[in-house]
């Protein structure tokens, strides 16, 4: 039943995404601009990491794409709450977990698609990285969007107005981006900043993807990245499902 229900909810929202092709492409615009106008600045700089500057920047941009995109996914649930769509679904026997999973799997699909576009553009710009590493990068994008979209939907079900939701998400996303070293590696940071950034889960993800992009699949960074990504996904999906089960108060 869970599979049936998840496929059903996923299909509904994927069709919704396909109807707005413009929005589908628009999401890559910001990281693409960074790639085009920021990426070339790094090519001659000593970044203190292995590989070319593209192998450092592109993993960061991939996670930036997921971070900003998925954290704002909840806006659609705020609209659907106002339209009564969420309650109409919650009154049917459909699985509560499926109501969340169908939505976040759609989000993961959309962001992995955007990530593919971004990586293809990066290859044109000069990125060279091993294929398994690139594929591992997509898996991390998928896990990051699953977890952040779950979190975003949970918050959206609680706050209920875009006026509360927008500022809250901005307050989470900007520091997360800066503190996880998405643009420039935290190995460049002074000690205090490096320490601080270890409290931000995305730090471990970006370190892992950077290792994957230089072909190091069994490093400590990779291990921590996998543990954090899987743990965070489990936690947020659990929280999100709880909210879909008990929402309304």
């Amino acid at each position: 039943m869970l599979l049936h229900d998840t496929a059903l909810v996923y299909g509904r929202y994927l069709r919704q995404s396909l109807r707005s092709r413009f929005a589908l492409l628009f999401g890559v615009l910001t990281p693409l601009l960074y790639l085009l106008f920021f990426g070339p600045l790094l090519t001659g700089l000593p970044l203190g990491e292995q590989g070319s500057s593209w192998q450092v920047l592109v993993p960061g941009l991939l996670l930036q794409l997921g971070l900003f995109g998925a954290l704002f996914a909840g806006f659609t649930v705020i609209m659907e709450n106002a339209q009564g769509v969420v309650e109409r679904m919650r009154v049917t026997p459909v699985s509560r977990l499926a109501l969340l999973l169908g939505r976040v799997l759609r989000d993961a699909t959309v962001f992995v698609f955007q990530a593919v576009l971004l990586v293809l553009s990066a290859v044109v710009m000069g990125l060279r990285a091993p294929l398994p590493g690139i594929l591992i990068g997509f898996v991390f994008v998928a896990l990051l969007t699953l977890s952040l979209a779950s979190l975003s939907y949970a918050i959206a079900m609680k706050v209920r107005t875009p006026q509360e939701f927008g500022p809250l998400i901005n307050a989470v996303s900007m520091p997360s981006m800066l503190l996880s070293g998405l643009m420039l590696p935290m190995s460049l940071a002074p000690g205090w900043l490096d320490v601080l950034s270890h409290f931000v889960p995305f730090r471990y993800l970006v370190d892992a993807v950077r290792d994957a992009y230089v072909g190091q699949y069994t490093s400590a960074h990779m291990l921590y990245g996998v543990l954090v990504a899987v743990g965070f996904t489990g936690l947020t999906v659990t929280v999100g499902t709880r909210v879909f089960r008990t929402a309304g108060a």
Binding site: Q16, A82, Q83, G84, V85, E87, R88, V91, T92, P93
Partner: peptide, 20 residues
């Protein structure tokens, strides 16, 4: 779950997506 199977509910706001 059994209550859900036995009843239908129309909220005041309805519950359909305008784009579908």
């Amino acid at each position: 779950a059994a209550v859900r199977r036995a009843c239908g509910y129309v909220a005041q706001s309805g519950g359909v997506d305008p784009q579908i």
